[in-house]
Design a protein around this nucleic acid. Structure first.
Lengths: 265, 265
DNA sequence: ATGCCTTTGTGAACGCGTGCACAAAGATGA
DNA sequence: TCATCTTTGTGCACGCGTTCACAAAGGCAT
């Protein structure tokens, strides 16, 4: 999926003994547990919870073992207690003000997201470079101009920033965010961001996800046609020889890579 | 990033000898190469390209080695040729019709995404359960009602579906898509989808990404305060003892998990 | 033609993540 | 109190992914 394993913070250090892979699954467990909690289910076995979370029960038990021994043998896990423990471990018992930079289609959609507040995330501000957007309310929050970025970060003690700008301005926005004190960034722009040590970046990229699906899709289609074991080394003819000293300019690959996964405007 | 490594198709089989981790990076390389191509750069070294893609050069070379020997020692890789080879490997030389189900904020934003066409992805249809949406054009494409889902899939030969509905209807939509012939799904709804063998699902979940960032953020903050090596076993007091036979109902965890990462309506 | 220089392609080692399988622990009932 | 049954917690082995380090290969200048 998107954020993928294919998605890791630059720092792959094992924080407090908890493996990165486990951290990535904790929110999934938490969601399943919250659902059980709302149904007033008192306890769950690792088997049941694993099934709800779509993972192996042994993996789930090992994941929980990194947090501590919160289960009761012969019974299972206390739902409420586990919800609290995971929330605490993830840092969701405190308030996290976030800013969203780039209020286009996607930025606006993110601003309207209802799942923020319930998890301790609060949209502190919406920021856009377009002066025409300034003052206009989106999801009940007035959009502010990029000029005020540093002040907003500072005044609200923001440490998490969401970038939903076009790719062209993403690095610049990123630099300003980091300079202003942001140390965690969720990037929706289709660019590789370079950040100093100590800053975490997670990337969400629709285009990449679709391309990965296309790869597997193509493979499936190929298996239907080709007999087992045959390797189709070259389905179609190559356009030009590999060691071509003449530069063969492509017609126009279509202007891509300049906008985030979802067009901001 | 989001698309994680935490996010892998159910089938972790090594397709045609290409590791899953490599497949996930190919789109990144492709983007960097496309940028070079537009600047008419004829060749790149593994070092340069790796830097642009934000990876280790040895990793990049090994990744490319799974595709074949497309480089020239002492020189580097021919940009145009490599663009073609990666595109072909990813299946981007053909047309991929996709449908988007759930035209809320996020669905609409996705529909407006400009990066589809340039990569061979074409929005074949927009589908929503709300009758009031039917016929209304979004991004120049008229929204169709869910009733026509099966016919749309069939008529257009769609094999890739994007789910941007609330969590509550995601599984149902998924089942219908799969039943109609879709074998790859990009899921934006905050739910674990269960699909039959042979169907790939990738998940994009804003809430999870933020929670992972919060974890690392909390860890950073803790390091500043606590001395090295000290393990804070219990920063705050637990709300209730772990083996509580009395079911302690939580006040209200906030209704979450019923809407996708971005509110659809 | 020959030697030097650059860069690829890959063998090998290492570390992380996963899954198996079982011992330990607690509940439950007689 | 004791036996039994259920479920957790984890030691261990395996496989994938990453990285190092270097030999092989090709270009280029003399």
């Amino acid at each position: 999926m998107a954020t993928d394993r294919t998605h890791r913070p630059a720092t792959s250090t094992r924080s407090r003994g908890i493996p990165e892979a486990t951290v990535a699954r904790l929110p999934v467990y938490l969601r399943a547990l919250t659902a059980l909690s709302e149904r007033s289910v008192p306890t769950v076995s690792s088997e049941e919870l694993a099934s709800a979370a779509g993972v192996n029960s042994a993996k789930l038990r090992k994941d929980f073992s990194y947090l501590g021994s919160y289960g009761t043998r012969g019974v299972g896990y206390d739902v409420e207690y586990l919800v609290y423990q995971i929330s605490r471990e993830l840092g969701l018992t405190q308030d996290w003000p976030v800013v969203i930079v780039g209020i286009g289609n996607l930025g606006a959609a993110l601003a309207n997201y209802g799942g923020f507040a319930s998890r301790g995330f609060r949209v502190a501000a919406l920021i856009d470079a377009d002066p025409a957007m300034a003052g206009r309310p989106v999801a009940g929050i007035p959009v502010q101009h990029t000029d005020a970025l540093e002040k907003i970060i500072s005044d609200n003690g923001v440490s998490i920033g969401v970038i939903a700008t076009p790719a062209g301005s993403a690095q610049q926005v990123c630099d300003r965010l980091v300079q202003a004190g942001v140390t965690s960034i969720l990037n929706f722009a289709p660019t590789v961001l370079s950040v100093p040590e100590g800053v975490d970046v997670r990337k969400v990229d629709l285009s990449i996800e679709l391309q990965i699906l296309a790869f597997h899709e193509q493979r499936k289609a190929g298996e239907d046609i080709l007999p087992e074991g045959v390797i189709p080394d070259d389905e179609t003819e190559p356009p030009v020889a590999p060691p071509a000293d003449t530069v063969t300019k492509r017609p126009d690959p279509g202007s891509d890579g300049d906008r985030p996964a979802v067009m901001p405007a």
